[in-house]
Design a protein around this nucleic acid. Structure first.
Lengths: 220, 220
DNA sequence: GACGCGAGTCAACACCCTGTCGAGTGTTGT
DNA sequence: ACAACACTCGACAGGGTGTTGACTCGCGTC
């Protein structure tokens, strides 16, 4: 997981035009208001006015800090993916120790990271369809994870623990996609979904059978 | 697949109040305009005025035929899921003949049905986040498919072709979710995606390994 | 200690889209 | 002829977004 980290809160180009000053807390107030309101209602039902008032400023002033409502969400998403990257750490480098345990650790940590900010995750899913910026950011994040998983699968094949089969990249895409959609359903709670306490084990099982043809892969 | 079919075009409650008449072609014109415009731009970038003008009527008149823009999409979605249900047919009842071939047939037919209306599918994904009605309809459709797949998996386990493991329902949810998300990525073309000509085989491989722990399950 | 400058603020405006209301038009059965 | 119904649209109200231009305030400078 080669995370191109930036110090949290100083998003690359989004957020306010550069130049520190007293308005920093206003920016944070907007972000905090957004995450708070997102726990109560859908992103589409939150107006810029709501965000502004929640942060104690007027609507035009909001535009001084963020170019749009979506930019606020983007900044929130940045934080969550950074947290997920950090939580994932280097587990994939230690796969051979105990493959099943390490994969479970990976999936479990992602689950915890997303579950801790489900409001943000759900909001991103909500606007992914309409906002190209969110789509692009999410695509980039996913691409990093796909590459990491692809490399891990190739490593397991090289050491003889996993059989050959599908191109590792395709497999990595399919498995990551599954996780995304299954988590979404579990967090959103509408439609057929796996119960929250089971979801990590269900996903793990599919990952292991797809990669190893077995639910109990061998350590080195 | 127990499809509660309705004759295409006469959607249950959406669309106009019942009673055939001359306005039928107007209603179809709106639907046709919607599907055509959807191939050019995103659902959110199409206004009711666009739909109305495309069908040769004024905006208020549009409301005579549909209560909202979303209702048009819902009707379009109805058609597509009906088509997919019909295409799926009874393949799952004939699994034992040749499991790999039948599962491939199932996935391949769904792929063809969705791929033939990708604009509608992508538009539904776009609004699922914001429209409860679309969410509900999609959830109901998915639930039917999940139940059908769950029953099929249980059947394969009963006849000894598939080993025990995850609850069949959880497995069915995970696999259907994977398909949905992978197809979306392939059709949308943004973010990591499996190439269109490979996607059926990739999905099939994961289904088979998850269900049978093998890519070559035994016929009866 | 006035002066200028830039950060920060907001009332007011222009715009676009949605949904509704009420007053029409034409056709059709009696 | 006429009532009833399907159908149509001009005009309005409402709510959201994004922009403009003027205003305040703190602060370094001459």
């Amino acid at each position: 997981m080669t995370a191109a980290r930036t110090p949290t809160g100083a998003a690359p180009s989004r957020g306010r035009r550069p130049g520190r000053s007293t308005g920093d807390d206003r920016e944070l107030a907007i972000l905090a208001t957004a995450e708070r309101l997102l726990e109560q209602r859908a992103f589409g039902d939150i107006s810029i006015d709501d965000l502004a008032r929640g942060a104690g400023i007027s609507r035009p002033t909001f535009y001084f800090y963020f170019p749009s409502k979506d930019a606020v969400l983007l900044t929130l998403l940045d934080r969550v993916t950074e947290e997920a990257d950090a939580a994932a750490g280097d587990v994939l480098d230690r796969l051979a120790e105990d493959p099943r345990a390490r994969w479970r650790e990976l999936i479990g940590r992602f689950h915890a990271a997303f579950g801790g900010h489900r409001a943000v995750v759900l909001a991103c899913a909500e606007v992914r369809g309409t906002n190209a910026e969110v789509r692009r950011l999410w695509a980039a994040v996913l691409e990093r994870w796909v590459q990491a998983v692809q490399a891990a699968i190739e490593g397991e094949r090289r050491r003889g623990a996993a059989p050959d089969g599908l191109p590792a990249r395709d497999l990595a895409i399919a498995l990551n996609s599954m996780n995304e959609r299954v988590w979404y359903a579990t967090f959103a709670g509408d439609g057929p979904a796996v119960a929250e306490q089971d979801v990590v084990d269900v996903l793990l099982d599919v990952w292991l059978t797809a990669i190893y043809r077995s639910t109990a892969p061998q350590p080195a």
